[in-house]
Design a protein around this nucleic acid. Structure first.
Lengths: 252, 252
DNA sequence: ACCTGAACACCGTTCAAGT
DNA sequence: ACCTGAACACCGTTCAAGT
């Protein structure tokens, strides 16, 4: 009935599942947590498209329909997966507030989230904007706010700074991950591939002129050897942000 | 055979389709451009999930299979749609370079892209990171670089600044759009909905404490009346970025 | 009470068959 | 040369039936 990816999660069911994931083991021994962990394993290895209820159920040795009482449906399962991995961002890392300098804290937040995206690349494919916080997301938010607290920003500025910084990290990580995926799909090296495509593209573009794009593209290519560099953009933007925040804070 | 959303577009075919979209009308009168425009109409009205070859074909009065010779497949069609709408970002707007002050140019780029996301909300659902530029994307890149040229940034800094700014705009627009969608799905007002959910959430969270998140959330709620404010985050981040760039440029 | 098999209404894409 | 119908191998989800 409901087409894939169309239905949204039921927020009321989600609250219980997010915050009490260990309840109600049936005779198969299933729990929301067990199912979630199995699904994360599948997604880490095979991507978000591999998350079908049939596939996850197979991993657990039950039928797809056996999962429904525990995780409500596919959208809810993905929310559970996201919250679970979010809880691990700072599990093996210093917390931002432990850094002495506040600029290092900002860098650390960006870096920790960047790395996390690459540990679980499927997370960048999930539609954003879930309004229902789970324990993982809430804890991470608390930890990151602590890194921005007391440096001279208002509460509202802290929230805006964190939200915009994380949005930028996710979007650039997404681009970097997509670049890796296209690369992985092609057998050829970057250079070989480009040598094949470039003449076609040049002739297709022959009616147009993009002087600035050409100049800037060359500069990027010379500096990085790549045609796009999301990671470099993040590094640059993080420093610009720190510099802008410093100006904002200066006379407080 | 290929599961939905799994196959990637064929880059070689794409080049021709992107740069010469008017060729090869058969006896049905189809062209890549006609198909693309019909698909954009469907996506604007019904979202990206409504883009099935059967649905687009129906719009044009042909069978789904008739589209294949013109657009290669679903992934390629979506690339064509993206490039087509990208060409319209500055169609009815000033170009950034026409603004006298460079900070206004940066604001204008952010604003133009933000608004564009809301004109075609499905664009934020498309996976990012396409390495094959079409005419629309290339022209927009050229126009936006012109807004950053000559203000004291190096070519590499211009590219990083633009890439990171656009990444942030997309990600925050995506969050805002998702918030609107959840809102549209519920019959209740924001306040009613929250009044229903809040007690459940509070009791679920009772074992945990998030003092900073609570304080900052309250500040956000008081200032904006909302539980999340991506647009406000963008406004803040744009000003911080401008301030940071000003510091970078100052003594050049 | 819990689990399952069959069924429903979809997908993108291929390919032989029709015009 | 161009278009189409049937087929393939999938989806998420429901629900009656089994244990």
């Amino acid at each position: 009935m409901a087409k894939r990816a169309e239905r949204r999660g039921d927020p009321i069911r989600l609250i219980g599942l997010l915050w009490r994931p260990n309840v109600s083991a049936g005779r198969s021994g299933l729990t929301p947590k067990l199912i979630t962990d199995a699904a994360i394993g599948v997604a880490d290895a095979e991507g978000l498209d591999a998350i079908t209820l049939r596939r996850v159920a197979q991993e657990l040795g039950v039928s797809a329909m056996a999962l429904y009482p525990y995780i409500a449906g596919r959208p809810e399962l993905i929310e559970l997966m996201l919250d679970a991995v979010t809880s691990e961002v700072y599990a093996t890392l210093e917390r931002p507030a432990q850094k002495a300098d506040w600029p290092d804290r900002v860098r650390h937040i960006a870096q920790a989230n960047w790395e996390h995206c690459f540990r679980h690349p499927w997370t960048v494919d999930v539609k954003a904007g879930r309004p229902m916080p789970g324990p993982g997301v809430s804890q991470k938010y608390e930890i990151e706010l602590a890194g921005l607290d007391g440096i001279g920003l208002s509460d509202l500025e802290m929230e805006y700074t964190l939200t915009s910084l994380l949005a930028m990290v996710y979007a650039l990580a997404r681009e970097e991950i997509e670049l890796e995926r296209s690369r992985a799909q092609t057998e050829q090296s970057d250079e070989d591939w480009w040598n094949e495509v470039a003449p076609l593209l040049t002739s297709a573009m022959s009616e147009y002129e993009f002087p600035l794009a050409g100049r800037v593209g060359s500069a990027l290519g010379e500096a990085t050897g790549r045609s796009a560099d999301p990671q470099g953009a993040l590094r640059h933007a993080t420093e610009v942000t720190i510099s802008g925040l410093a100006a904002l804070i200066k006379d407080r």
